[in-house]
């Protein structure tokens, strides 16, 4: 353990600090096990009861998604009968196709991809920049500014929707994607997360060496900080992406149906003149698929990332 240089009283420290302590190694080398603690956890083998309970929990987690697929693959008559269907029917592709058109999901997905992509990239970039400054650079007012960053976490952006809406309308950005992107270009949690990581994972000597070589701050950031910060940057990217993709309140207010993100487009399926239940479910399934695929491919990394840093918007 090489983290002893930073005094942290485990009981009082916030979870981030505790977790960061384990999450970071000064060399920046990737660890095999993301969350193993040499002397902790995993004390007992699981008994059959534990497996049964976990099985039930997994069932509860996955069943609604499975059933979405089932409902999306039947027709309207079957899905509204009792007992409800439990096995997939033959209409899946047909319904997916119709829902794709009805809810303009193609455009919505492209929009969501742009929104979530830009937000995630800029959040990561700005959080790493600021995190580096707060962790390793000395400047007047640093501590006060850092406290300010933390303080902003307590101000949920949703409270400003009314003036924000008026602002965007005045700027001519109503119903346009920048209106969704701008307010979430940065994240306080992200800044704090990167700061915690870098203050432990980035040795002062490396930065100093860079200075001796005559590198300016941006150069140091690019060639020394970024390589070391890559693992937490990836984590921050994935989590920010998921949150931005699923964000609802503000996009719902500022966008409309001609230019929606996925969650906004999905509301269109349930409101207004009734569509087939099976079509609604097909739309819900389509809207979920991209993130679901991401979770299937990167599940392990995302789980590891969430356990490393409690990032929740």
């Amino acid at each position: 353990m090489t983290t002893d240089s930073i005094p942290v009283r485990a009981a009082d420290a916030p979870p981030e600090t505790v977790r960061m302590k384990r999450g970071a190694t000064p060399s920046g080398a990737r660890r095999r096990r993301l969350f193993a603690h040499p002397r902790a956890g995993r004390q007992h083998h699981a008994g059959p009861l534990a497996y049964i309970l976990l099985g039930i929990a997994a069932l509860f987690s996955l069943f609604p998604l499975y059933w979405t697929m089932v409902a999306a693959s039947t027709d309207n008559t079957r899905v509204t009968q009792t007992p409800p269907p439990f096995l997939p029917g033959p209409h899946l592709l047909e319904n997916l196709g119709k829902a794709w058109q009805d809810a303009a999901l193609g455009k919505a997905m492209l929009n969501s991809l742009i929104v979530a992509g830009v937000i995630a990239l800029s959040t990561v970039l700005f959080a790493t920049l600021a995190g580096f400054a707060f962790a390793k650079l000395r400047f007047k007012g640093r501590n006060i500014l850092l406290m300010l960053v933390i303080g902003t976490m307590l101000v949920p952006p949703q409270l400003g929707v009314v003036p924000l809406f008026m602002m965007m309308t005045e700027l001519g950005l109503g119903q346009k994607l920048p209106a969704v992107i701008f307010p979430t270009l940065v994240s306080a949690v992200g800044v704090f997360f990167m700061r915690q990581y870098l203050s432990e994972a980035l040795p002062d000597e490396l930065v100093e060496a860079g200075r001796v070589d005559g590198a300016h701050s941006l150069r140091i950031f690019w060639s020394i900080v970024l390589p070391i910060a890559r693992p937490p940057m990836a984590v921050l990217f994935m989590i920010t992406f998921v949150h931005a993709w699923n964000d609802f309140f503000w996009p719902f207010i500022v966008l409309d149906m001609s230019n929606p993100t996925v969650p906004v487009a999905l509301t269109q399926l349930s409101a207004g003149y009734v569509r087939d239940q099976s079509l609604i479910m097909a739309g819900a399934l389509l809207g979920t698929l991209p993130l679901l695929a991401m979770f299937i491919i990167f599940g392990r990394q995302i789980v590891g990332g969430i356990m490393q840093g409690a990032v929740k918007g």
Binding site: A58, P64, L65, P263, G299, R300, I302
Partner: peptide
């Protein structure tokens, strides 16, 4: 991953 899957589902 199974426990986290619902988190991938949007509110909508």
């Amino acid at each position: 991953v199974a426990a986290l899957t619902p988190y991938a589902t949007s509110v909508g």
